[in-house]
């Protein structure tokens, strides 16, 4: 599985391996089946416990939904995984072998963790196609980037993704001129271009129409298997549509975990959602 993925990656990305690479050459060891291990994480902001003894495991190829009321720690958990925030204590590793807490944001991105933000963040001054180009997996060091040119193959990949996210005819528009929903799609497209092992997707369907939502659900489902996906979402219908397993966070810790049905019948969950 691991070897297969590496070959896949090597074939898909026409990148030259340098001698001094560190993070880019690391592949997570998923021999125990889990891709992501978060254990006993704690983090507080000025006395407020945003994350409280949180433990969370994700299997390779799994699609997991994370729900929970506001302030439950969903976004903060993503921040920790992507290196934006460091926990006060606890451990986070990618596979068995890569300690996420020792890597910078860009290194974490390079080992294959991609993230879509809650508020869509695209590069508004750039065209749609340029946004995708920037996100594209490849050598992201300074000088290779300075002299980089798009190969035909890469161009094809961009066109593919443009097709998937439905922005083919907007390819040459400035991203800033897109609608909110289109920006959401563009950001998902950027995630696809990054081709990460793990996708963290924060509220992907906010501001989308029903049809768009359906397409997003379809897309995320199709990604699972080859990729591991964590989706944070408020929209329960959407969660029901895509999730096999759901994790409920509350006050910085895991309140419940299971299938959607199990979750919905869990008295603790009901109390948290209905009680407030």
């Amino acid at each position: 599985m691991k070897a297969l993925r590496q070959i896949q990656k090597a074939m898909r990305r026409d990148r030259q391996f340098g001698l001094m690479h560190s993070a880019r050459d690391m592949a997570p060891d998923v021999s125990h089946g889990e891709l992501l291990y978060l254990e006993d994480l704690n983090l507080s902001f000025d006395g407020f416990k945003a994350i409280d003894d949180l433990s969370f495991y994700l299997e390779a190829g799994e699609l997991r939904c994370v729900i929970g009321p506001n302030g439950a720690g969903k976004t903060t958990m993503m921040d920790i995984i992507t290196g934006k925030t460091r926990p006060d204590s606890g451990s986070a590793s990618f596979g068995l072998n890569i300690d996420l807490l020792e890597l910078s944001e860009s290194e974490i991105a390079e080992i294959g963790i991609g993230r879509k933000f809650q508020k869509p963040t695209v590069f508004e001054c750039h065209r749609v196609i340029e946004n995708l180009e920037l996100a594209m997996a490849g050598d992201k060091r300074v000088f290779p980037t300075l002299f980089a040119k798009l190969t035909g193959e890469q161009r094809d990949r961009i066109d593919d993704v443009l097709g998937i996210i439905g922005l083919t005819e907007h390819a040459y528009r400035d991203a800033g001129a897109l609608s909110h929903g289109q920006k959401q799609w563009l950001e998902i497209g950027m995630l696809l271009m990054q081709d990460p092992l793990l996708l963290l997707v924060d509220e992907p369907v906010a501001g989308m129409t029903h049809q768009e939502m359906d397409r997003t659900a379809e897309l995320l489902r199709s990604l699972a298997g080859n990729h591991s996906v964590v989706v944070v979402e408020h929209d329960m219908e959407f969660v029901r549509a895509i999730a096999k397993r759901v994790t409920v966070l509350h006050r910085g810790r895991v309140l419940a975990e299971g299938t959607m049905d199990q979750i919905q019948n869990d008295p603790k969950v009901i109390e948290v959602y209905l009680g407030e």
């Binding site: 590069f123 508004e124 750039h126 180009e133 920037l134 997996a137 992201k140 980089a148």
Partner: peptide
């Protein structure tokens, strides 16, 4: 160049660029 586009991206949304894997 692509680097120039990365630069502008940094100007507009620095954190986002980091999460794409650029140093």
């Amino acid at each position: 160049s692509r680097l120039g586009r990365v630069a502008v991206a940094i100007r507009d949304a620095e954190a986002r660029v980091r999460f794409l894997g650029y140093r």
